[in-house]
Design a protein around this nucleic acid. Structure first.
Lengths: 191, 191
DNA sequence: CTATGCTTTCAGTAGATTGTGAAACAGGAG
DNA sequence: CTCCTGTTTCACAATCTACTGAAAGCATAG
């Protein structure tokens, strides 16, 4: 077979690889944005994830065309989230970074953090609101008022929703993969 | 019983109600922001949801201290999402708006839309990247290169994750009308 | 100690997002 | 038709966020 390698020198696959990676990086960045993560951070993460090889600050700067300052700050933030890791190479002065390799683990780290930062406070607020509208607080007659009754119903509806969602989150914090696949299995069996 | 009403005139519970609602509205707005929904839109929605009574544009403007233009645009956007509805009152000229009452239904509407807009394109991109790095495309020898192999593994890991997540979304979305409560019951029992 | 190589910080700014308010529009009543 | 009530649009303004680049910081080597 007149192999493809002859026609396509090693450069071409390299370009192809870079193009594919860039595509992924761009899309990941876009998605990040709409989920409340800034584009650059998402892109850096995508870059580290997709290349699957430790990269240093300059690699990041070059590949994504961003400043040193931005790289540094974003890399630190990603480390704080815990979805990338610092890595010292023996005898090298500069620091390298690598992404966690297990998507499920990354997801569960993110889920845990967002639950803590965003869902928990809302649930707390809902409970606080409910306390403010209890019969004891607001008076027996007042508690019968339609407006108050309606708001209490709505609070209850939202509370139930958040409690269930929380439980589901709980399920795969720590054991993301098995937890999620279990959700799928349960759902698929039931319907 | 020397009722509370005497000590606490009807005004006080009204204030209490408003305070509680405002608290909820504010928190909901904050959460919205971090999930990529603009604060005002989230607040308007929270207002309509929590009062559980139809409100007109002026009510929204007053309660949230925003301009007419902003109210109009945001209300329209919420209608487009399908989580609030326009409502004509007989003999009234002005339009009223009300929130869907079922949190589960709202969630499944939002989930469907976000899946379509954000997850589907990513999955599509992943597949495209994989095609770009197939043996046939890139050449047999090239396909053995470590860098390419690694990237392919990462793509595969991400793909698997997104497929599972998609299935879960699918379940929620598919059962929106018919039996979301059933989905919930099933999940609650299972966990 | 200074020089070197690399990282972090941060004030200032560029760019994006969100909000305003006035003008245009819509349509029913008289 | 005009008047009235209400809605929508949109250029501009205010605000917020992300990014840069230069300076400061830090650790190691010499």
């Amino acid at each position: 077979m007149a192999t493809v390698e002859l026609d396509a020198p090693a450069v071409v696959p390299q370009q192809q690889l870079k193009t594919a990676q860039d595509l992924f990086i761009r899309r990941w960045g876009e998605m990040g944005q709409t989920w409340g993560i800034n584009r650059t951070m998402a892109e850096i993460h995508a870059f580290l994830y997709i290349t699957a090889q430790p990269q240093c600050t300059d690699d990041v700067m070059e590949r994504l065309n961003i400043s040193r300052g931005n790289s540094s700050m974003s890399l630190r933030a990603l480390c704080d989230w815990g979805i990338i890791r610092r890595l010292h190479k023996r005898g090298e002065r500069r620091e390298y970074f690598e992404s966690l390799s297990d998507v499920w683990e990354m997801f569960s780290i993110i889920a845990a953090e967002r639950k803590r930062r965003e869902m928990d406070p809302v649930l707390e607020t809902i409970k606080q609101c409910q306390r403010m509208l209890e019969e004891g607080t607001v008076g027996k007659a007042a508690a019968k008022q339609e407006a108050i009754q309606l708001t209490r119903e709505r609070l209850a509806g939202m509370e139930e929703f958040m409690e269930v969602t929380n439980k589901i989150f709980q399920q795969f914090i720590g054991n993301a993969k098995s937890g999620l696949t279990r959700v799928v299995r349960v759902l698929l069996k039931a319907f």
